[in-house]
């Protein structure tokens, strides 16, 4: 079975989605950054009347904020990506991964039928899925392979 076929039978909602910071449109970039930092999230979703209107990620911070004058106190709307691509919770993990590859995006908001954002899919979800799926190969490895016992000896 290939990775893709295994991921095809897995729904996005079954993956471990990442958390996100949610702010209303019009929030200042500075406030959004403060929230992202205190909530330890690397992605911020912008909503208007509860529906998703934009996304702002750590890459945007690097490209459009940190070294650019006069954006910090402006609205987040100016630096976000409007109308982001999203998927429903029932989409297959494989198709979500395909979308991320095709559009070169690293955060894919997962939005349910009522318009509520339930999480953000990242490559980390796939890594964690792989780790849990193949614990013997991935999870249960020595921390440092240089200190691998030459003789396995049950204890």
């Amino acid at each position: 079975m290939s990775l893709e076929s295994e991921l095809r039978s897995e729904r996005v909602s079954h993956l471990r989605l990442s958390g996100f910071t949610a702010v209303p449109a019009g929030t200042s970039v500075r406030d959004a950054l403060g929230r992202m930092r205190s909530e330890r999230n690397t992605v911020c979703l912008i909503t208007k009347e509860r529906s998703l209107t934009g996304i702002f990620t750590e890459r945007d911070v690097l490209r459009k904020v940190v070294d650019v004058a006069d954006v910090l106190d402006g609205p987040i709307d100016a630096v976000m990506t409007a109308d982001p691509i999203s998927v429903g919770p029932d989409a297959s993990a494989a198709s979500a991964l395909g979308l991320m590859d095709k559009h070169h995006i690293r955060n894919l908001p997962v939005v349910d039928a009522s318009g509520q954002v339930v999480g953000s899919m990242t490559h980390m979800a796939v890594i964690e899925w792989l780790a849990a799926h193949y614990p013997v190969e991935v999870l249960n490895r020595p921390y440092d392979p240089e200190r691998f016992p030459r003789k396995a000896e049950g204890g």
């Binding site: 614990p135 190969e137 999870l139 249960n140 490895r141 921390y143 691998f148 204890g155």
Partner: peptide, 20 residues
Amino acid sequence: FVSDQTVRWCPGCGDYSILA
């Protein structure tokens, strides 16, 4: 919290995950 000792469990042993 990681010590300098060589971990002697068999490769793939679930103990690794618990330790981590």
